[in-house]
């Protein structure tokens, strides 16, 4: 799974831009929650930005991702616009899902998102189905499934790893190991020290990368995508990362982990480290990164304004789109 290619300056800028946008989106959301704006149940992605950005940097626009409950970052990294995302969280009809999904179901199929999905493991099946679709329709598309170390334990993930391997489907299993399934630590819940060791049981390459380094994640994803497009089958990437805040808004993390551990993780913050690296050896300059941050701040200002000023769904929306309606004489 080693690759010799290095990310171009353009690729690095793209990854920083996405990480910065995700961070700012989540911080803005956190501020909204804390000031009492009703945005439903949310699971902040803060701390894990490098994983979504690194993986999606290796994907094309027409590739797919399947996401989990902590999915805002995946959606932004794959190209969903922040304004309709924010509007969705406000329950507005201009939202990605017309206000019918909320945080845990955000999607934009035109951007290759098979859905944020809060049933742990469920979306792994959807990614595999998209990979099957690519194979049957003879395209070179690939699908990436994001799940946590918690999602690595549920049956469907194992069923899918096995089937992906026997049929050599173009899929990448991306396990974001952030250390905790709600309040259950990974060292308690996993039979193996590395989740990636399980890949061997399904006869596919498994790597363990630093999920705080977007370049390391991108390198692993590039190799996995290359293998998938070549028809050689699935790969497994475990990205070690950390969620800075609770499982969902309002969760007090100090009931199950120590302050020192949280501080150590924050010391390895993906954005801080990236900036330090660029400052030291380039090719991007801090001024470039600051300009990206400023541009993202503007996007978020506009997104919140758009969400606030958008209309709520009409009462008739309750009953629309329950069943798929026949179109153009399909029957």
């Amino acid at each position: 799974m080693k690759t010799t290619s290095k990310p171009t300056a353009e690729k690095l800028a793209w990854m920083y831009e996405r990480m910065s946008l995700i961070r700012q989106f989540e911080e803005r959301l956190k501020w909204l929650v804390e000031t009492g704006v009703p945005v439903g149940a949310v699971h902040y992605y803060i701390g894990q930005e490098a994983v979504a950005a690194g993986v999606c940097a290796a994907l094309n626009a027409d590739d797919w991702i399947a996401s989990n409950h902590r999915g805002h970052g995946h959606c932004i990294a794959k190209g969903v616009e922040v304004a309709p995302m924010m509007a969705e969280l406000f329950g507005k009809v201009t939202g990605t899902n017309r206000g019918k999904g909320g945080s845990m179901h955000i999607t934009d199929i035109t951007k290759g998102i098979l859905g944020v999905n809060p049933i742990v493991g469920a979306s792994v099946g959807h990614a595999l189905g998209a990979a099957l679709s690519a194979k049957v329709r003879q395209t070179t598309q690939v699908a990436a499934a994001f799940f946590g170390e918690g999602g690595a334990g549920i049956g469907i993930t194992h069923e899918c790893m096995n089937m992906a391997s026997i049929w050599k489907l173009p899929v990448i299993f991306v396990c974001e190991n952030n250390g905790y399934a709600q309040a259950t630590p990974v060292e308690y819940a996993s039979s193996t020290a590395k989740i990636s060791d399980r890949a061997a049981g399904y006869n596919m390459p498994g790597v363990n990368v630093d999920g705080q380094d977007p370049v390391a994640v991108w390198e692993a994803a590039e190799a996995a995508v290359k293998r998938a497009r070549a028809g050689e089958g699935p790969s497994f990437i475990e990205a070690k990362t950390y969620r800075y805040f609770g499982h969902h808004q309002g969760d007090d993390t100090l009931r199950y982990r120590l302050k020192e551990e949280e501080q150590a993780a924050r010391d390895r913050d993906c954005l801080k480290q990236f900036r330090a690296k660029m400052e030291k050896s380039g090719p991007l300059k801090l001024a470039d990164l600051d300009a990206i941050d400023a541009q993202n701040k503007k996007l978020l200002d506009d997104a919140v304004e758009f969400a606030k000023s958008s209309p709520l769904p009409g009462p008739e929306e309750l009953y629309t789109d329950v069943y798929v309606q026949a179109k153009g004489g399909a029957q």
């Binding site: 099946g125 595999l128 189905g129 998209a130 990979a131 099957l132 069923e159 899918c160 096995n162």
Partner: peptide, 17 residues
């Protein structure tokens, strides 16, 4: 693997099959 292949069908149906 009913859970897996029914899930695959959902993903496949969303992507052109």
């Amino acid at each position: 693997a009913e859970m897996g292949f029914t899930g695959m069908a959902v993903g496949a149906a969303m992507t052109g099959l």
